[in-house]
Amino acid sequence: MITLTHFLVVGACLFSIGLYAVLARRNAILVLVGIELMINAAIVNLVAFSRYDKAFYGGQVFALFAIVLAAAAVAVALAIILNVYKFYKSVNPEDIRNLKD
């Protein structure tokens, strides 16, 4: 029997893996992958909780919106990273540090 807890644990694992990928900062693309994992963790949670919201299915609608917005944000981020690559010939956030205190 798969219960709500199972979904929440999967979500928490996904979120932690995503957060690790973001904080490790090896490569801008990997950071984006990490962000995507974090968003998916939230989507798993939303859909799992939505099972108990029979009246409006608010969580499922929210999940759909979140998927669309995540796709839009990733498209924009990839275009920007492509521009960065043109100037720096690298997408490693550690190499890209002209702007600092």
Binding site: A28, I80, N83, V84, F87, N98
Partner: peptide, 11 residues
Amino acid sequence: RQTEAAMKYVL
């Protein structure tokens, strides 16, 4: 500089 600012912002 401008692309760098945009990348930091978006990430």
